[in-house]
């Protein structure tokens, strides 16, 4: 059990000295992406995203398995994994960053708050800085909904799109994140 998990947990818990009371998590977060061209719209969804959020420091990490992105057409899924993402060599993708305006959020007061996020996104072994905005919704139940949408350039992550399908796959892909965080009690 230990060996594999170590590396991944080192990442998750590099949010290390967090106070247990301020640590939230989800294992069923949703990340979807959308590619739009006049020729074709492509979208895929991953509903098994693991993410941690520390509401004290604002630190957050996300991790996904590339193969857990599901497409409507199975051939697209195959091309995505084999031709574009090389998911055998790079099975995981991660984001590590923080909510920079975390101090402005009153976690004792339910409601929706605008957030600014800054961090590093790693896809196919390439890491780039991402700055985006989003919302955190503090629910009466104590759960927290986190949402954000941003765009990435496929070039920046070494994803090559063959000439033949150039008109069908956008160079800039829209990524949407939808996380339902619960208090981490372990």
């Amino acid at each position: 059990m230990k060996t594999i998990i170590t590396l991944f947990f080192a990442l998750l818990f590099s949010i290390s000295a967090m106070n247990a009371q301020t640590r939230y998590f989800t294992k069923t977060g949703t990340i979807s992406f959308f590619s739009h061209t006049p020729m074709e719209d492509i979208n895929a969804e991953n509903n098994q995203v693991t993410s941690f959020l520390d509401i004290d420091s604002g630190e957050m990490v996300f991790a996904v398995l590339i193969r857990s992105f599901e497409f409507k057409k199975s051939l697209m899924e195959e091309h995505f994994n084999e031709n574009y993402m090389d998911s055998e060599k790079f099975p995981k993708s991660q984001f590590k960053g923080s909510i920079v305006n975390i101090n402005k959020i009153d976690f004792s007061k339910p409601g929706k708050y605008e957030i600014q996020i800054n961090g590093n996104l790693t896809i196919r072994g390439e890491t780039n800085q991402v700055e985006t905005s989003g919302t955190l919704e503090i629910k009466e139940s104590g759960e927290i909904d986190g949402k954000s949408t941003f765009n990435i350039d496929v070039d920046a992550y070494g994803i090559e799109i063959p000439k033949l399908v150039k008109d069908k796959i956008a160079k800039s892909i829209e990524i949407s994140c939808d996380m339902n965080y619960q208090l981490y009690k372990k």
């Binding site: 594999i4 998990i5 991944f8 947990f9 998750l12 294992k27 098994q48 693991t50 991790a63 996904v64 398995l65 193969r67 857990s68 599901e70 099975p91 995981k92």
Partner: peptide, 12 residues
């Protein structure tokens, strides 16, 4: 089977 993060992940 799609692989493993902390959990083994399966879909469909």
């Amino acid at each position: 089977c799609n692989g493993i993060l902390t959990n083994i992940q399966m879909s469909s």
